[in-house]
Nucleic acid binder design. Structure first.
Length: 616
RNA sequence: GGUUCCGUAGCUCAGCUGGAUAGAGCAGCUCACUUCUAAUGAGCAGGUCUCAGGUUCGAAUCCUGACGGGAUCACCA
């Protein structure tokens, strides 16, 4: 109870207003804000809503209410009224008591278990190329959401669906077969995902050459004459025709499609090659995931799930959720939900993306009995998920009203969009290396960690570099398209990961220096400093922030909170002496406050996948 | 064109279910390290919250419309 000062105030105030003025007010109706720093006080009640109902002037009502609160609540020591705002000051005694409660609270940064099971799907890469900056935003958002949900009381299962099949995968397989000459990641020393990615690029290059040659043939001339639109130049036409060329005339295209057919037929050599190359990619991904500090509890492979959902369509046809068109294809009519018709099974009976996703959702429910599902997928798929969730609802799935698409905007570079064709894609592994190198550069001028072992130093630099990168990406509201400025992403000053780490490190430094200090009673500490109260208020906001971040699936809320708390601590550190405090009681209080801030900072950052160094 | 997301300082972003004089960081200009780590702190400067209406005691926030930008509207995944 004492750890929820805000709730306590709201309840008391609601009771006071209800009895004193005989109107019905619930605690949840009370608007209680942090007092702006220009005014005296800790918390502020907005009384405008009652001014009108009670037909009293704000000044009179405020004065009456403030007095009543101070009289009835020991926790409140003073009040003042400005316009329609009643500013309340928390008694120093109460702050000391609250700090004591925080210190002994082993649930300081978590919410009680809610008995619900949630699955978070993120990353979900294709196995034909390495991970890039776009994946990093996805992975960081997914990981942070999963950690936040866990802290908010859910049982969480992290998953990714690995897109390990299809024409794209066959392209790299074919290129390796043709041009690889038996090379392997081991023989070349190239990380597996990058190795395979090279062959994907190689395929595209060969295809381009083949296409260029074809464009000079008589066949191409005929196609151009037949299909080019009015006023379209040959260049424009061929640019737009590339996909059709691949499907209709390309030798490489024909071979790649043949390879896909063989794979689907389970042809032994093809499947063996597929397994080998995917194995290389998985090794590569594993390294990247490890570097980013993320793990998965369950993997789904598209090669296992791509046939799922077909029986569901059969059943849905019988129950009338889906209907058949003349050509035999199956559809769902979403007009009642203000959307169009959507195909769920092709006329040849094969599944589409939507079918798979329906089947996979059901599979997951069968596997884990989940109550809630979060898909971390880019915002270009907003419509797809809207449709998917609607269909699952129509099918009466028990978890259907707790399906969420954590949609995020694309990551742009300062020069504009990342384009693989123009080689402006930022590789995930390169980026990680780069930020760590930058951390090393910044550290070399400082020398704070010189006395650590080489291994510890490397670990510290890794933590610092990654925090810069991760924080830079995660502090932005997921819905916003974001600009990734490489220079700014390695900044370590201002609103950055290292800035927050530094607040934590300062606490650790002080704690090391006071290791033999055993005093634990600060009851004699009289008057709290403004920054001490400010820190207490910030600490009191954590659970609200956590609840909101979990509710909105928005890790940036935690990121911004951690910055605010770190900023408060830096200022506190600057304003007051801790080890050389004016009294033992003050020193004891400040040490406890510092410890508590450090715990919250560390836990909050851990929710973002950011580790704290002990020194920096 | 339909749907949807975004638009806040030169730049990158906060601003919770409507509340007090719209906040940070970066960049720029000052100042503070014999004092617990200066990856810090203090200050100056920087704003028509895209625009126009509406609701309200009160709007960056809610509603309508316009403007600008993105995404999407595949028997691709």
């Amino acid at each position: 109870m004492s750890t929820h000062i805000k709730e306590q105030i709201k309840e008391s105030v609601a009771k006071i207003i209800s009895t004193k003025y005989e109107i019905d007010i619930k605690a949840s109706d009370i608007l209680l804000n942090l007092t702006k720093k220009e005014f005296e006080g800790d918390y502020t009640i907005v009384i405008f809503p009652y001014v009108k109902r009670l037909k009293m002037s704000p000044a009179v009502l405020g004065a009456e209410l403030g007095q009543a609160i101070v009289d009835e609540m020991d926790e409140i020591s003073a009040f003042n009224v400005v316009a329609g705002f009643v500013n309340l000051s928390i008694a120093d005694q109460q702050w000391k008591q609250t700090l004591g409660a925080y210190a002994s609270d082993d649930q300081l940064t978590t919410l009680p278990a809610n008995g619900k099971k949630v699955m978070v799907e993120f990353s979900s890469p294709n196995t034909n190329k390495p991970l890039h900056l776009g994946h990093i935003r996805n992975i960081l958002l997914g990981w942070a959401s999963s950690q936040i949900l866990k802290a908010a009381g859910y049982e969480v299962i992290n998953t990714q669906i690995i897109n390990d099949r299809g024409i794209a995968v066959c392209k790299s397989m074919l290129a390796w077969q043709r041009y690889g000459e038996g090379a392997t990641p081991e023989s070349t020393g190239i990380k597996g995902d990058h190795f395979v990615g090279q062959y994907y690029v190689r395929f595209d290059k060969e295809l381009k050459a083949e296409y260029a040659t074809w464009q000079t043939t008589a066949e191409a001339a005929t196609v151009l004459a037949e299909k080019a639109k009015e006023g379209q130049s040959a260049d424009e036409f061929f640019k737009a025709y590339k996909n059709d060329y691949f499907n209709e005339y390309s030798i490489l295209g024909r071979d790649a499609k043949e390879m896909l057919r063989q794979w689907e037929a389970g042809e032994a050599d093809t499947v063996a090659l597929w397994k080998q190359m995917n194995g290389w990619v998985y090794d590569g991904f594993e390294t990247t995931y490890k570097a980013l500090g993320v793990t998965f509890d369950k993997l789904y492979y598209e090669s296992d799930t791509y046939l799922l959902g077909k029986e569901v369509v059969e059943k849905g046809l019988k129950s009338g959720v889906f209907f058949k068109k003349d050509d035999g294809s199956a559809w769902v009519d979403l007009e009642a939900h203000k959307m169009d018709e959507k195909i769920v099974l092709r006329s040849d009976g094969t599944a589409v993306y939507m079918t798979q996703d329906i089947g996979t959702a059901m599979q997951r429910y069968a596997d884990f009995g989940i109550d809630k599902m979060v898909y971390v997928v880019g915002d270009e798929q907003n419509y797809h998920f809207k449709v998917l969730f609607t269909i699952l609802g129509m099918l009466g799935e028990p978890y259907a009203d707790d399906l969420h698409h954590l949609s995020y905007g694309m990551v742009d570079l300062p020069e504009g969009r990342m384009k693989s064709r123009e080689g402006t894609v930022v590789d995930a592994d390169d980026l990680v290396q780069e930020v760590i190198a930058e951390a090393k550069k910044a550290n070399d001028e400082r020398g704070e960690i010189d006395e650590l072992t080489a291994e510890e130093q490397a670990d510290t630099l890794r933590k610092i570099g990654l925090s810069a990168l991760k924080y830079f990406i995660i502090k932005v509201n997921p819905q916003k398209r974001m600009t990734f400025n490489p220079a700014e992403s390695v900044d370590m000053q201002g609103q950055t990961g290292p800035y927050i780490q530094n607040a934590y490190v300062r606490v650790q430094s002080i704690l090391r220096k006071s290791a033999d200090y055993t005093e634990s009673d600060y009851s004699a500490y009289e008057t709290l400093e403004p920054m001490e109260k400010s820190l207490m208020r910030s600490l009191g906001e954590f659970k609200d922030t956590l609840a909101a971040a979990a509710e909105n699936l928005d890790p940036s809320m935690i990121a911004n909170y951690a910055y605010d708390l770190g900023k408060d601590y830096h200022k506190f550190y600057h304003d007051v002496r801790i080890l050389k405090a004016e009294s033992e009681a003050a020193k004891c209080f400040r040490l406890q406050l510092s410890r508590t801030v450090a715990v919250v900072l560390k836990d909050a950052m851990a929710m973002l996948g950011i580790e704290m160094p002990e020194r920096m």
